[in-house]
Computed example of a mutant assay.
Amino acid sequence: MSETRTPVATEQAAPAPPEESEELSGRKASLWADAWRELRHNPIFLVSASLVVIFAVMAAFPQLFTDGDPRNCPLERSLGSPSAEHWFGFDLQGCDYYTLVVYGARVSMVIGTVVTFFSVLIALVLGSLAGYYGGLVDTVISRFTDVVFGLPFILGAIVVLSVVSEQSLFWVVVVLVLLGWTTMTRLTRSSVLSVRDADYVKAAKALGAGDLRILTRHVLPNAIAPVIVYATIYIGIIIAAEAALSFLGVGLQLPAISWGLMISEADTRVLSSPHLLLFPGLFLSLTVLSFILMGDALRDALDPKLR
């Protein structure tokens, strides 16, 4: 008699393998991820960002670009023309001009980034308070912003720097910060106004989240994009403003090394020694243009309507 065997237990079905997904599956889609994908294929952004990185490295590590000493200035080389050995020639004191141009990047980049950083901090605080709370808080902050905004930027900086006892890097930064936060404050306020009544903000309030948490975790992350775009452009604006103030004689003073100071010293020798104006002017223009183009590319990438 044959014995019939029955399975004691059925095998457990193996879990189905996950389906293959498209490029964006498994990732949380966001505005910043979309913007980065857009920027990676934007030649204008790639070129401008590369130039910004080069100038930043030049400012931080000038020894990588030249082994010369910017203070080594034999007078017998005064106003020497560019040559194969000395690409940019020499200035009036006999300093190697290429070395001066390289070391001049440090002041411009430091002033541009530091002024922009503190201006953004002021703008985020004041603009967030004005846009989120509204009412009397918004009125006081907005009217104060309008008063400061009414001061001409360059003219106001000239007046203040003309009365300070020492026209140093510190005072140039302080004056530019005090006069330069207004536009970003307006941008922050308008961005916060556009998101403060969103559903996720109302949900956070309903769950009992405090104002500080709502601002830092929900409002600002969704309202900061226009400020970042303008801040990128603003670095270039500040670098140009510092050069203008130094050229007018109220910014940095010798023995500081600055592109603005170099252009100022070249204004009376443009025809006889054009290299004195050409090279610092070229580096200054490329730096400012790079930040502006990078800011424009960021704006296009962060605004879906412009794609």
Rank of each mutant, 00 (worst) to 15 (best):
L136A: 15
W181A: 08
G94N: 08
R299D: 15
S50V: 09
V250P: 06
I224Y: 01
G210V: 07
A206F: 12
A59V: 03
P18E: 11
A241E: 04
L278C: 07
L306G: 12
S194R: 06
V52M: 14
L31N: 13
L252E: 04
S50N: 05
L100I: 06
G94Y: 06
A223L: 07
W259C: 10
T4R: 01
V114K: 04
V107L: 06
S272Y: 08
L100V: 01
L46N: 11
T287K: 11
D138G: 13
A13Y: 01
L92N: 11
D303S: 15
S168H: 02
A256N: 10
D199I: 10
P255E: 07
R71T: 13
V288H: 08
R143H: 09
A240M: 09
P221K: 08
L155R: 00
E85S: 14
S162A: 04
L215S: 06
Y98E: 07
G135W: 11
R307E: 13
F65W: 09
V270L: 14
L261W: 07
A243F: 02
N222S: 10
C95M: 04
L129K: 11
P18G: 03
V192C: 04
L254M: 09
L282A: 15
V115C: 09
V47K: 07
A56I: 12
V147H: 01
A14D: 12
D303M: 11
D69R: 12
S246D: 07
S30W: 07
L254D: 07
T6C: 00
T145P: 05
D146L: 04
G156P: 02
V159Q: 00
Q253Y: 08
I237P: 00
L51Y: 09
L261A: 12
